[in-house]
Simulated scan of single mutants.
Amino acid sequence: MSEAARATSSGPGRVLIAVYGVFALSATARAGVQIATRFGEAPVAYLLSALAGVVYILATIGLAGHSPAARRLGWAAVLFELIGVLTIGTITVFDTGDFPDDTVWSVYGRGYGFVPLVLPLVGLWWLRHTRAR
């Protein structure tokens, strides 16, 4: 007999959701200020920070939800986040020309203590850990 999926918002998942919520708020707010005040200086970087903020919002919603659709949203957002931080991180290590200012995912999240690199790994582990068996 198969066991139902555990809620991703239970136990340690609550801390994970809180961290995602903080990143959703901080990345979105920072990008909003940068776009409103200095967009011409680094438009690619600021738009990527805004995209990261949206991804963090979606991941927070997906991880906090209790439905199968929320779980799918969580998987999609966290996978996108991992691909984003690896791609942008690699680009910014080798080509800083297009990124005169940091994004959340620049150099694998160096400006945020590399939490943006570790966070999707923890998120994917948690989604897998709480899946139906």
Score class of each variant (00 low, 15 high):
residue 1 M to E: 07
residue 1 M to T: 09
residue 2 S to M: 08
residue 4 A to F: 15
residue 5 A to Y: 15
residue 6 R to Q: 14
residue 8 T to A: 11
residue 8 T to P: 10
residue 10 S to K: 09
residue 10 S to M: 11
residue 10 S to H: 10
residue 11 G to M: 08
residue 11 G to Q: 04
residue 11 G to R: 10
residue 13 G to M: 03
residue 13 G to L: 06
residue 13 G to N: 01
residue 14 R to E: 04
residue 14 R to C: 01
residue 14 R to N: 02
residue 15 V to A: 15
residue 16 L to W: 01
residue 18 A to G: 14
residue 19 V to G: 02
residue 21 G to L: 01
residue 21 G to S: 01
residue 23 F to T: 01
residue 24 A to D: 02
residue 24 A to I: 03
residue 25 L to K: 01
residue 27 A to N: 03
residue 28 T to Y: 00
residue 29 A to N: 03
residue 31 A to W: 00
residue 32 G to N: 10
residue 33 V to L: 05
residue 33 V to P: 01
residue 33 V to T: 04
residue 35 I to H: 10
residue 35 I to G: 07
residue 36 A to V: 04
residue 36 A to M: 07
residue 36 A to I: 10
residue 37 T to V: 13
residue 38 R to K: 04
residue 39 F to Q: 12
residue 41 E to V: 15
residue 42 A to Q: 12
residue 43 P to V: 09
residue 43 P to I: 12
residue 44 V to Q: 09
residue 45 A to S: 15
residue 45 A to C: 05
residue 45 A to N: 11
residue 47 L to Q: 10
residue 48 L to Q: 14
residue 48 L to I: 11
residue 49 S to A: 14
residue 49 S to C: 11
residue 49 S to M: 11
residue 50 A to V: 06
residue 50 A to F: 08
residue 51 L to Y: 13
residue 52 A to T: 10
residue 54 V to T: 12
residue 56 Y to F: 12
residue 57 I to W: 15
residue 59 A to W: 00
residue 59 A to L: 00
residue 60 T to L: 08
residue 61 I to C: 02
residue 61 I to V: 14
residue 61 I to Q: 04
residue 62 G to I: 04
residue 63 L to F: 15
residue 64 A to F: 04
residue 66 H to M: 06
residue 66 H to I: 06
residue 66 H to C: 08
residue 68 P to A: 08
residue 70 A to C: 06
residue 73 L to S: 06
residue 75 W to F: 12
residue 75 W to T: 09
residue 75 W to L: 07
residue 76 A to N: 08
residue 76 A to W: 05
residue 77 A to L: 06
residue 78 V to P: 12
residue 79 L to K: 07
residue 80 F to I: 14
residue 80 F to Q: 07
residue 80 F to L: 07
residue 80 F to D: 03
residue 81 E to C: 02
residue 82 L to G: 05
residue 83 I to N: 08
residue 84 G to V: 06
residue 85 V to D: 04
residue 86 L to Q: 04
residue 87 T to I: 13
residue 87 T to V: 13
residue 87 T to C: 09
residue 87 T to K: 12
residue 87 T to G: 12
residue 88 I to G: 09
residue 88 I to K: 07
residue 90 T to G: 12
residue 92 T to W: 03
residue 93 V to F: 15
residue 93 V to T: 15
residue 94 F to W: 15
residue 98 D to V: 05
residue 98 D to E: 06
residue 98 D to R: 14
residue 98 D to C: 04
residue 99 F to Y: 10
residue 100 P to C: 09
residue 100 P to K: 15
residue 102 D to V: 09
residue 103 T to I: 10
residue 103 T to V: 14
residue 103 T to W: 08
residue 104 V to Y: 13
residue 105 W to Y: 10
residue 105 W to S: 11
residue 106 S to G: 13
residue 106 S to M: 10
residue 107 V to E: 13
residue 108 Y to T: 14
residue 109 G to Y: 01
residue 109 G to S: 00
residue 110 R to F: 07
residue 112 Y to W: 13
residue 114 F to H: 05
residue 115 V to Q: 03
residue 116 P to S: 06
residue 116 P to W: 06
residue 116 P to D: 06
residue 117 L to S: 13
residue 119 L to Y: 02
residue 119 L to R: 00
residue 119 L to E: 01
residue 120 P to W: 06
residue 121 L to K: 13
residue 122 V to Q: 02
residue 122 V to G: 02
residue 123 G to K: 00
residue 123 G to L: 02
residue 124 L to G: 02
residue 129 H to P: 00
residue 129 H to A: 13
residue 130 T to V: 07
residue 130 T to I: 07
residue 133 R to G: 09
residue 133 R to L: 11
